[in-house]
């Protein structure tokens, strides 16, 4: 560590991580159950295409307008995926993959004429957790509180379409805060680590693993000065492995 360290540097990052975990851990369990693990990549990419398109037709979107366009595009994709799951459930994961490459390459084609849109796409997909500041967290906290109220309020009665829509909003917000790598990890790793646990322990254990990973990752990144997001991903993978190994025995005894 170089010199004295101000906790304020990493406090917003930790809060951002906690916000992301709050929604992504329960959503991730559903994603894993359905075996559609690349859905986050696809939805985020489509949100990006929406913003480039809006920019391309001359609508100079800023601030909240960008968010409306991004969430709108993500929700359209979510509605589409809800239908494909109804019609062709056996190939849903493959279709999600196809949606991802189409959205990713559509952005390349759209950007060929409008490289400034590339800055938007980068802002949207490659959020960096360390750049987060407090004012950015407030709208996300409000949105996530609403999503969680819907999610847990309805309990097991959340219909498939509800899952896809909640997912679209949650992902569009989180990729901008912490980037796609951390979004993917926060969804999948805690869910993977806890899937063998007794039902009532799964969510608390997954949240704990996630939180410990953000704490460890941010701490290591401060000590060794590595890019923060990448260190958190590795910390989470290690903790998930350790958790999957140790927790079942521990909790059975408890």
């Amino acid at each position: 560590m170089t010199g004295e360290f101000n906790v304020n540097i990493v406090m917003p990052a930790l809060l951002a991580g906690m916000l992301v975990l709050s929604t992504h851990v329960p959503l991730g369990r559903r994603v894993l159950e359905r075996g559609i693990i690349f859905i986050d990549l696809a939805i985020a990419q489509v949100a990006g295409v929406g913003v480039i398109l809006a920019d391309g037709v001359g609508w100079e979107a800023h601030g909240w307008e960008v968010q409306v366009v991004a969430v709108g595009a993500a929700m359209i994709a979510a509605l589409g995926l809800n239908l494909t799951e109804k019609w062709w459930p056996d190939i849903q994961e493959a279709l999600i993959g196809v949606l991802f490459v189409l959205a990713a390459t559509a952005s390349v084609l759209l950007l060929a004429d409008n490289p400034h849109g590339g800055e938007h796409l980068k802002d949207l997909l490659v959020g960096q957790i360390l750049w987060v500041d407090y004012p950015q967290l407030i709208p996300v906290a409000i949105a996530y509180a609403l999503l969680l109220a819907c999610w847990f309020g309805l309990g097991t009665r959340v219909p498939t379409i509800g899952f896809y829509l909640v997912f679209a909003v949650a992902i569009t917000a989180s990729v901008q805060l912490v980037g796609i790598y951390l979004v993917f990890s926060s969804l999948i790793l805690p869910a993977l680590a806890t899937r063998k646990l007794p039902k009532r322990w799964q969510l608390p254990a997954a949240w704990t693993i996630g939180l410990l990973a953000y704490l460890t990752g941010i701490g290591l990144s401060m000590v060794f000065d590595y890019p923060t997001g990448a260190v958190i991903v590795w910390a989470m993978a290690m903790l998930a492995i350790a958790g999957a190994w140790v927790l079942p025995g521990l909790l059975r005894k408890a």
């Binding site: 540097i9 000065d225 590595y226 923060t228 990448a230």
Partner: peptide
């Protein structure tokens, strides 16, 4: 044009 966010960058700017 692009860089990865590391804690030392913020610490460097602070001092």
């Amino acid at each position: 044009h692009y860089i990865q966010a590391r804690p030392s960058l913020i610490a460097g700017v602070r001092k």
